[in-house]
Every structure is written in structure tokens, then in C-alpha cells.
Design a protein around this nucleic acid. Structure first.
Lengths: 197, 197
DNA sequence: GTCTATACAGTGATAGAC
DNA sequence: GTCTATCACTGTATAGAC
């Protein structure tokens, strides 16, 4: 029997993927074990607080990723470039719609109430970071606010629809339209046809 | 002890609300009983197939509501009016963002795989009905397709964000922008301020 | 159509051996 | 850091009395 030894840094992404796919309620220890090959012993070793602690740390991990790769650039870097970078980062992170947003999925059911703070902070910061960047490109406050809100909302909606319709191209199509509305039309490349020329 | 007697017609909306709030995995019989005051006996009487049958019937019920109030009007009525009507119907149905979309929430986790067909049909029909109506207003096929996709996706995203940010006005704001993009700007009324004049 | 009792598998959680 | 055994409890499901 092969026995793999992990560190916490390795464990969180594995658990995150299980929670993302199964949802908080659907993610039982046995199912997490199936997907991650981490036994109950290991799981409780890393997360003595059980499932709730697991989910809290996973949320923090997601938030940290977005803070580094999306929020901070939007808040501090040259806005045009940061907005374009947000779109490619989002496309990568959500694997062009094949992966869903863990935070968004937690928001939809009663799980939200366990993690209200983290969930609220994530989206509020995303919208206001994007709004700030848009203002720095010269948009007025009102326009910036609603463009930012619409962009984040469209990303979430596109993730829902991609999974629901099984139309894998939907997410990229939506992202391209978001790019246009945010004034960075070239940020998302048109999917190239597989032709021989 | 008060003993209420139900018919199936009364039962489905109750169960639907429980599933909507708790999600498929989160909705255990004991929790459904808490919310609906329907005992396990009654539940199994109406849905001999257990939870899976409950959810399937609830999905069919939601789909029927949308078919009558949204899809068919879009497919058959005067397009401008049908689109405007869709927006007010959606605003009412989702209680201005206080209620989520059961079909969308099922799409996000592993529950989707149990009900792929129903979930896919719901969204595909919604988008194509709206797309058809837009074409009848004179839009070209491409524009109609992407406007329809964006509108449905924005509704789903707005539901996620409203619950996540706890900003109850977000949904109405988003709906108003959707109304504008669909060419029926007056469909959603601006929320009136409570002033004395 | 509803209630109660009961089944038995799966749940989150703990303790201790390795 | 991982494994196994075991805990009390909740899960879905069934049967039969009312």
C-alpha cells in the first residue's frame, strides 16, 4: 500500500477542488477521501475543526489567490492593463468555464450563512477594485460602478450557464463581451478554428 | 395536535421552497419537515421515489411555470411586450433577488449530473425563446443570440451576487440594465424613494 | 393522507496504535 | 502525518397502524 505524506500547502488545493465540485453539504468525508486520497486521519490532522474549518481555510485560500492575481492589480497597477489581466486570470482560473466559483456556489444555499463575512468581502472587494480601476481609466463614478457590477455578475452567471447548458464555448463568448464592455476588447482572444491553413 | 391534510398541488411549492433554500444535498427529510410541517410519511406518500423524485417533480414544476409565464409568451406573443413581460415576471418570481434560481443552483454542484436533461432544457429554451423574440423585433441573428445569452446569464449572476453581497437593491439595478440592453427600458420601474412629496 | 416504529448505511468526530 | 477502530447521531427508506 502506497502511503503519501502531505503538507498543508498541498492539502488545501485538493480539498478545495472537492468542495468546489460537491458543494459544502455534498462534500462528505468519504467523498473527499475518494477524490483526494486523503484519509480521515489526515483530514482531521490538518483541520482539527472538521468540515467547517476546512471550508473556511479553502475560502481564505481562494480569496488570497484573487487578492494577489486580481484585486491588488486592479487596485494598484495601471488600470487598462490590470483589467485586461483580470480577464485572462479569470479565464485561466475557471478553466474557461469548466470550473465553478466556490464562493458563488456557497452563496446560493444555506452554506452562505456559515461564511457570510468571507463571501461578502470577496465579492464586494472584487466589484470595488474593478470599479476603482475603471474610474482611473476616466469613467465617471456611476458608469464605473455599474460596469464593474455587471462584469462580475456576468462572470458568475456565465459559470452557471456553462455548467447548465454544457456549452463549453459559452464562457469564452461571454468573457469576450465583458472585455468589450470594459474597454479592453483584445484581452480575450477569439477561439481559433482548428483549420489546416 | 393539529393535523393538516394536503394535496399534491399544495405540497410541491412547499417542497420546492425547501430545496431552493437548502440545495439538494442540504435538504434532508428532517429539515424539509421543519420547514414544511410535512412528515416523512406524507413526503413518501407523495414522492414514493424519495428525494430524487421530489427534486425531479419540483424541477418540472418550475419549468412549467416558466413555460407558461416566460417561454411561451416569448415564443408566441408580440416580442416587445413579451420581453417586457419576461422582466417583470422574473422580478416577481425571484422576489427582486431574495429568492434564488433552483435550476441554476442545481447546475453548480454534482446535483447537475442527476438532472442534466431538465436543467439543460430549461436554460436552452429560455435563451432560444428570448433570442427568437429579439429576432422578431428586427435584430440580426448574431446580435439576438448574444443579447439573449447575456440577459439570462446576467439574471443568474445577479441572483448569486445579491445573495452574496446582501445588497438587496443589486438585482433591480441589474434588471434595469438588462431591460435597456433588450430594448425595453421602461419595463422595470426605478425604485421610488420614500419621500413625502 | 398522516403518524409511529424500525431498519440499517452513512455521517462527522475522537482516540490511540503505528 | 497516517491509519484503524469505534462513537453517537442523522441520513434515507420501509411497513403497518390509524
Amino acid at each position: 500500500m502506497t502511503r503519501t505524506v502531505y503538507e498543508k500547502t498541498d492539502v488545501i488545493p485538493l480539498v478545495a477542488e472537492a468542495l468546489r465540485d460537491l458543494g459544502y453539504e455534498g462534500a462528505s468525508f468519504s467523498r473527499i477521501t475518494e477524490r483526494t486520497a486523503l484519509g480521515k486521519g489526515s483530514l482531521y490532522h490538518f483541520f482539527p475543526g472538521g468540515k467547517e474549518e476546512m471550508a473556511a481555510e479553502v475560502l481564505a485560500h481562494v480569496d488570497a489567490w484573487f487578492a494577489t492575481n486580481v484585486f491588488r492589480p486592479l487596485e494598484e497597477d495601471e488600470p487598462q492593463a490590470a483589467i485586461a489581466h483580470m480577464l485572462t486570470a479569470v479565464d485561466d482560473y475557471f478553466r474557461s468555464g469548466q470550473r465553478i466559483c466556490l464562493v458563488g456556489s456557497f452563496a446560493l444555499d444555506a452554506t452562505r450563512d456559515r461564511f457570510v463575512g468571507a463571501i461578502q468581502r470577496y465579492f464586494v472587494r472584487w466589484i470595488s477594485a474593478l470599479c476603482g480601476a475603471l474610474k482611473r481609466t476616466g469613467k465617471d463614478a456611476d458608469t464605473a460602478k455599474h460596469l464593474a457590477e455587471d462584469a462580475v455578475l456576468a462572470i458568475q452567471g456565465a459559470l452557471v450557464l456553462t455548467r447548465a447548458t454544457m456549452d463549453n464555448a459559452l464562457f469564452s463568448r461571454a468573457l469576450k463581451r465583458i472585455a468589450i464592455s470594459l474597454g479592453v476588447p483584445s484581452a480575450i482572444k477569439t477561439q481559433r478554428r482548428q483549420t489546416k491553413t
